[in-house]
Design a binder for these strands. Sequence first.
DNA 1: ACTTTTGCTTGCATAATACAAGTAATAACG
DNA 2: CGTTATTACTTGTATTATGCAAGCAAAAGT
Lengths: 147, 147
Amino acid sequence: METKYRCNCPFTSALDVLGDKWMLVIIKQMLLENKETFKDFTESDEAIATNILSSKLKQLEEYGLVTKSKLPNNKKSIYYHLTDKALDLTPVILELGIWSDKHLREAHPTIVDDDGMQLLRTDKAEFGRVIEGKYREKLAAIMAISH
Amino acid sequence: METKYRCNCPFTSALDVLGDKWMLVIIKQMLLENKETFKDFTESDEAIATNILSSKLKQLEEYGLVTKSKLPNNKKSIYYHLTDKALDLTPVILELGIWSDKHLREAHPTIVDDDGMQLLRTDKAEFGRVIEGKYREKLAAIMAISH
DNA sequence: ACTTTTGCTTGCATAATACAAGTAATAACG
DNA sequence: CGTTATTACTTGTATTATGCAAGCAAAAGT
């Protein structure tokens, strides 16, 4: 893969990497929904096809947004996790959620509105700290035992 | 057009609307680069094809992100502008820019780094206020004379 | 041993995007 | 007034991205 950047605009360049149907969704699933393995992703609500998932995970790796590891007690499963570069996309994802919460409910009334969304609405920074903290904890645990 | 939302996740739903190669780029061009007419867009660095531009502008209208107007002294040009719903995407666009600034320069060294980017880096909130303020001013001027 | 699970790949269908050309309605110019 | 240029598109075709179904090898479970 060799990304063709459309131009020198930083905003457009970000979208050259992330502007498709799946990249940010997969990152969100890892960050917010504890998805770690191939199977986890295939079972998610978004129902990504396995060939797309496979190719997107490869792209994410090439961009340095995702790394893989195996756990010693499980030779079958591969664990995917986010790098710091991907964790720095947290604000982008949060802002998308805030916008969605405010503007998409009219067209799409069944969008979830749980405690998490309420926290995001009332204290975005705290929401960000909480999820990033949780993710880093989990990551540390996995890294400690993976090889 | 009838958007198929993949699921009830607010983040994914935002990407059902915005997650493609062009939607956020066009919004950015209007917000940050004073693009207003069909011609403006075709002449931009991103070099969008006219058929894509046409279909994306239609989508943006249908989503309530863009409206059109004509100026009394010009029967040829159609002026496209952002709605409040689209202006609320400013934080998303800024966060994409911040991420790009921090992480994409290595892979794509020619990304611009001007006064605007410096302000974005050092004072995101101020950057947001400035560009949104400027846009609203311009919009008010156009609205005052359009029919 | 046999079956199931996991992490993929392959083949084919459809949808999104790209490129080139053409068109109708203005507007500008001689 | 007639000719040319500009603007906002559409149409046709090629290429790329995504979707769906099936298959497959390695590991795990029974």
